[in-house]
Nucleic acid binder design. Structure first.
Length: 296
DNA sequence: GCGTCCAGGTCTACC
DNA sequence: GGTAGACCTGGACGC
């Protein structure tokens, strides 16, 4: 039976700014209707293998979650929605840092800075691997293939994000031929097997007591995860002291701050050093300003 | 239509 | 520790 849940949001929360924070809203099981500002997702109760396609949107100062069925318990859906939209993340200190720089004043005005994420670190980790060394178009293809070919059917033509168990079962040629993952194929299998065997627990990274450099080292132990991928995942975990520089971010920096000339990473790091532990979020907001101020 | 380049990089071998 | 070369794919681009 369909049902509707309501979630209170913090004062400095913007549904649009959060959904548009980066490309994750374009990766299945997320789907964005940017005319009506509704974000779809397939919620899962991993323990029971149940799934509920849902739609999130903002109305009257609350986030509304409409669900197609009652297969996933309310408490699980609510927790996942809060996690996805980062409703419990306190950005007060970050916004305070931005008052030192008028150029980034728009961030707090637009209530930006909450980077959309998946309900599980597992899903974010796999998606991050899909962003490495390829175009965004290929990233979307790989994620779509993973979801539609390995995800559990959830009705209405929707699929949940595949579990580690489902991914561990498939042979390498499946990833090469069906997912189009190329050289990443053995990495996916190794990662999935590590998670299913209990050797690796990505969800524990959310509350890890390790320092960021130590946690980064652990993330980089995953084959296919280098500096960019580890720092990108750290941002999704709520740690912003790495810049997660990739070719897109670098090119945007050259255009905006270096007269379109290439420079080394040290210069980029110096530029954002004043934001201290928030520098990774500061560079991301700075480089994506047009998305929020010009419309996207 | 075909070849080349490169994109939201990383791994390995070698020095 | 630093660096060169290999690695899959698909889209853009030049011819």
């Amino acid at each position: 039976m369909p049902r509707t849940l309501l979630i209170d949001v913090p004062e400095n929360f913007s549904f649009r700014s959060t959904v548009y924070s980066h490309g994750w809203c374009e990766l299945l099981p997320f789907e964005l209707d940017d005319e009506n500002w509704r974000l779809s997702y397939v919620f899962s109760d991993a323990g029971n293998g149940k799934h509920s396609p849902g739609v999130m949107y903002e109305n009257d100062g609350k986030v509304v979650v409409e669900l197609a069925n009652a297969k996933v318990p309310d408490v699980k859906v609510l927790a996942d929605a809060r996690h996805i939209l980062r409703l419990d993340e306190d950005l007060t200190d970050f916004y305070g840092k931005l008052t030192q720089n008028e150029a980034l004043a728009w961030v707090s005005e637009k209530s930006a800075g909450r980077m959309l994420r998946s309900p599980t670190v597992w899903e974010d980790l796999v998606k991050t691997l899909c962003t490495t060394n390829c175009s965004w178009a290929l990233t979307k293809i790989m994620v779509r293939n993973l979801v539609e070919k390995l995800g559990a059917p959830a009705g209405r033509g929707k699929y949940a994000f595949p579990t580690a168990e489902a991914m561990a079962r498939m042979p390498e040629h499946f990833y090469r031929d069906e997912i189009r993952a190329g050289y990443r194929s053995p990495y996916f299998i190794e990662l999935a097997e590590s998670v299913t065997s209990g050797k690796l627990d990505p969800e524990a990274w959310l509350h890890s007591e390790l320092s960021t450099p130590e946690l980064k080292k652990e993330i980089k132990s995953v084959k296919g995860c280098g500096d960019y991928a580890a720092e990108n995942l750290l941002k999704l975990l709520g740690r912003y002291d790495g810049l997660a520089l990739d070719s897109w971010l670098r090119s945007q920096f050259y255009k905006k701050h270096n007269r379109e000339k290439v420079c080394n990473d040290k210069k980029i790091e110096r530029h954002y050093s004043k934001y201290a532990e928030w520098r990774g979020l500061a560079i991301w907001c700075d480089m994506t300003e047009r998305w929020f101020t010009d419309g996207r």
